[in-house]
Amino acid sequence: MKFVAVCACPAGLMHTFMAAKGLKKEAKKGGDEIAVETQSASGIENEITPEELAAADAVILAIDTAISGMERFNGKPVVQVGTSTVLRNAKSVLDQARKAAKGE
């Protein structure tokens, strides 16, 4: 499947990037494609493109803080978790996203 994700945490220094890495590792393992945007102390990086969003089966938000651009995801299946959920069990997050994509 194809996913897009946004990661963000309060200080925007560490958890954002750990969660991003965790999602990418797990997606690769499961044979899924994922584009991960980070909103951190460095600002927005790897911003999800309209094409990536249009092609995505579901959206994963691994966030502990408010993010910008939530309205982009209107009408898409969205799975929202905290960054620590990704660090604890990235597979469960991808599984949730797969289910959401199928409308389960």
């Binding site: 220094l13 560490m14 958890h15 954002t16 990037f17 750990m18 991003a20 890495k21 965790g22 590792k25 980070t38 951190s40 460095s42 660090l87």
Partner: peptide, 10 residues
């Protein structure tokens, strides 16, 4: 560098 460190810890 910190972002790279965060990834390294994973």
């Amino acid at each position: 560098i910190l972002a790279a460190l965060a990834e390294r810890l994973m």
